[in-house]
Deep mutational scan, measured.
Amino acid sequence: MKHYEVEILDAKTREKLCFLDKVEPHATIAEIKNLFTKTHPQWYPARQSLRLDPKGKSLKDEDVLQKLPVGTTATLYFRDLGAQISWVTVFLTEYAGPLFIYLLFYFRVPFIYGHKYDFTSSRHTVVHLACICHSFHYIKRLLETLFVHRFSHGTMPLRNIFKNCTYYWGFAAWMAYYINHPLYTPPTYGAQQVKLALAIFVICQLGNFSIHMALRDLRPAGSKTRKIPYPTKNPFTWLFLLVSCPNYTYEVGSWIGFAIMTQCLPVALFSLVGFTQMTIWAKGKHRSYLKEFRDYPPLRMPIIPFLL
């Protein structure tokens, strides 16, 4: 059985960083990364991007050496992705923050609204209902991160945790300040508006959870398998008939419901920014589905049925 020789060059300087002799033909890129780490321990596998061309796409960890368009002496180019952190850690951090930050404003801890309001309670029912909904949303997200989601990528750049936390924590503080303010004004149409908004919120939260469970069942634990998601017997998953990412559709719907319930401008802005970002993600995933699966359902749109 022939063996391969693998040289790894710096993608920027073309400097030879490592030479691997007698590499098995069936070795994966993940195994080559581990061998590279032995000579350069500062670059652990998650930091490494190996590619066939200095400006090309990163090879997948599961790619097999003998199936790549290389000879028995293969040249790979290395790029440092920077310090990495696990997706689970990032999600837990960015979701735990809003949960606790919101509660600080809800309980009106000292130095927020003035001494005479310390630890007082709002007289408006919608304020307490909003706290329950907000807390439920982020507790749900935390539990899904721990027990439901299966991540195709193990890590992301460390800098992302600061960007994500600034976004989630900042908006949580902004909306919580106004919703729990002693001078907060309840919704214009009173109980009817709150009940309608609560119904929207609850339905969308159930829908979002149902989609996450359906997506989880598509991917076996520990794998990166991708399949076309289809509706199940659960009615909340029937939205798969019309959109590629109904989890985002339901998520946006939840925040629209919360915005109607609280009639709070920061919540509306958070919903708008979230919708914009999720639309970008949904379009990317939709394109990926179309590219990977020739039999992908043609009627589906990325996030909004028939429109977007």
Rank of each mutant, 00 (worst) to 15 (best):
Lys2Ile: 05
His3Tyr: 07
His3Cys: 02
Tyr4Gln: 13
Glu5Tyr: 12
Glu5Thr: 11
Val6Met: 13
Leu9Gln: 06
Asp10Gln: 02
Ala11Ser: 11
Ala11Leu: 05
Lys12Thr: 11
Thr13Asn: 09
Arg14Ile: 03
Arg14Leu: 12
Glu15Trp: 08
Glu15Val: 07
Glu15Lys: 10
Phe19Leu: 10
Phe19Tyr: 12
Leu20Ala: 03
Leu20Met: 05
Asp21Glu: 12
Asp21Val: 09
Lys22Asn: 11
Val23Glu: 07
Val23Arg: 01
Val23Lys: 06
Glu24Gln: 09
His26Ser: 13
Ala27Asp: 07
Thr28Gly: 00
Thr28Cys: 05
Ile29Val: 11
Ile29Trp: 08
Ile32Val: 09
Lys33Cys: 07
Lys33Ile: 08
Lys33Arg: 09
Asn34His: 07
Leu35Val: 06
Leu35Asn: 01
Phe36Gly: 14
Thr37Cys: 09
Lys38Leu: 12
Lys38Pro: 04
His40Asn: 01
His40Trp: 03
Gln42Leu: 11
Trp43Arg: 10
Trp43Ser: 06
Pro45Leu: 10
Ala46Ile: 14
Ala46Trp: 01
Gln48Phe: 03
Ser49Cys: 01
Leu50Val: 08
Pro54Arg: 07
Pro54Gly: 11
Lys55Tyr: 02
Gly56Arg: 02
Lys57Asn: 07
Ser58Phe: 07
Ser58Ala: 12
Leu59Met: 05
Lys60Asp: 01
Asp61Gly: 11
Asp61Arg: 05
Asp63Gln: 00
Val64Asp: 13
Gln66Trp: 03
Gln66Leu: 04
Leu68Pro: 11
Thr72Asp: 03
Thr73Lys: 03
Thr75Tyr: 04
Thr75Ser: 07
Tyr77Gln: 05
Phe78Pro: 13
Asp80Cys: 15
Asp80His: 05
Gly82Met: 15
Gly82Cys: 14
Ala83Gln: 05
Gln84Tyr: 05
Ile85Thr: 11
Ser86Lys: 10
Trp87Gln: 15
Trp87Glu: 01
Val88His: 02
Val88Arg: 01
Phe91Trp: 12
Glu94Pro: 14
Glu94Gln: 01
Tyr95Arg: 03
Tyr95Leu: 03
Ala96Val: 09
Gly97Val: 08
Leu99Asp: 12
Leu99Thr: 04
Phe100Tyr: 09
Phe100Gly: 13
Ile101Leu: 00
Tyr102Lys: 01
Leu103Ser: 05
Leu103Val: 08
Phe105Met: 00
Arg108His: 13
Arg108Gly: 07
Pro110Thr: 03
Pro110Ala: 08
Tyr113Cys: 10
Tyr113Phe: 10
Tyr113Asn: 09
Gly114Ala: 09
Gly114Arg: 10
Gly114Tyr: 15
His115Lys: 00
His115Cys: 00
Phe119Met: 15
Phe119Cys: 14
Thr120Gly: 07
Ser122Gly: 08
Arg123Trp: 06
Arg123Met: 12
Thr125Ile: 10
Val127Trp: 04
His128Glu: 13
Leu129His: 07
Cys131Val: 00
Cys133Glu: 06
Cys133Thr: 02
Cys133Lys: 00
Cys133Pro: 01
His134Val: 02
Ser135Glu: 04
Ser135Cys: 10
Ser135Trp: 03
Phe136Val: 06
His137Ser: 06
Ile139Arg: 15
Leu142Pro: 06
Leu142His: 00
Glu144Trp: 10
Glu144Val: 03
Glu144Gln: 01
Leu146Val: 08
Leu146Gln: 01
Val148Ala: 06
Val148Glu: 02
Arg150Thr: 04
Arg150Cys: 09
His153Ser: 04
His153Thr: 06
Thr155Asn: 03
Thr155Pro: 08
Met156Phe: 00
Pro157Tyr: 04
Arg159Leu: 10
Asn160Lys: 05
Asn164Val: 01
Trp169Met: 00
Trp169Phe: 00
Gly170Ile: 00
Phe171Thr: 00
Ala172Phe: 01
Ala173Glu: 01
Met175Ala: 14
Ala176Tyr: 04
Ala176Gly: 11
Tyr178Gly: 04
Tyr178Asn: 07
Tyr178Pro: 14
Ile179Val: 13
Asn180Phe: 02
His181Asn: 01
His181Thr: 02
His181Met: 02
Pro182His: 00
Leu183Arg: 13
Leu183Pro: 04
Tyr184Leu: 15
Thr185Asn: 04
Thr185Ser: 07
Pro186Glu: 15
Pro187Cys: 13
Pro187Asn: 05
Pro187His: 00
Thr188Lys: 15
Gly190Thr: 13
Ala191Glu: 04
Ala191Leu: 12
Ala191Tyr: 01
Ala191Ile: 03
Gln192Ile: 07
Ala197Val: 09
Leu198Arg: 07
Ala199Ser: 05
Phe201Arg: 02
Phe201Leu: 10
Val202Pro: 15
Val202Ala: 12
Cys204Tyr: 03
Leu206His: 05
Gly207His: 15
Asn208Asp: 05
Asn208Cys: 15
Phe209Leu: 11
Phe209Cys: 12
Phe209Ser: 12
Ser210His: 11
Ser210Phe: 11
Ile211Asn: 05
Ile211Lys: 15
Leu215His: 15
Asp217Tyr: 03
Ala221Val: 11
Gly222Lys: 00
Ser223Ala: 09
Lys224Ala: 06
Arg226Pro: 12
Lys227Thr: 09
Lys227Arg: 12
Pro229Ala: 12
Pro229Gln: 03
Tyr230Glu: 07
Tyr230Val: 12
Thr232Ser: 11
Lys233Gly: 14
Asn234Ser: 08
Asn234Thr: 11
Thr237Ile: 08
Trp238Ser: 08
Leu241Ser: 15
Leu242Glu: 15
Leu242Val: 05
Cys245Leu: 03
Asn247Glu: 15
Glu251Asp: 08
Glu251Gln: 04
Val252Ile: 15
Gly253Ala: 04
Ser254Val: 15
Ser254Pro: 02
Ile256Arg: 07
Ile256Ala: 00
Ile256Gly: 00
Gly257Ala: 14
Phe258Leu: 12
Thr262Gly: 13
Gln263Lys: 08
Gln263Pro: 06
Leu265Asn: 04
Leu265Ile: 05
Pro266Ser: 07
Val267Gly: 07
Val267Trp: 00
Val267Ile: 03
Leu269Thr: 01
Phe270Ile: 11
Phe270Cys: 08
Leu272Gln: 10
Val273Ala: 10
Gly274Ala: 12
Phe275Trp: 06
Met278Ala: 13
Thr279Arg: 14
Ile280Thr: 11
Lys285Glu: 05
Lys285Gln: 10
His286Pro: 08
His286Gly: 01
His286Asp: 09
Arg287Ser: 06
Glu292Asp: 08
Arg294Ala: 00
Tyr296Ser: 11
Pro297Lys: 00
Leu299Lys: 11
Arg300Gly: 04
Arg300Lys: 13
Met301Gly: 08
Pro302Tyr: 00
Ile303Leu: 09
Ile303Tyr: 01
Ile303Phe: 08
Ile303Gly: 00
Ile304Phe: 10
Leu307Glu: 02
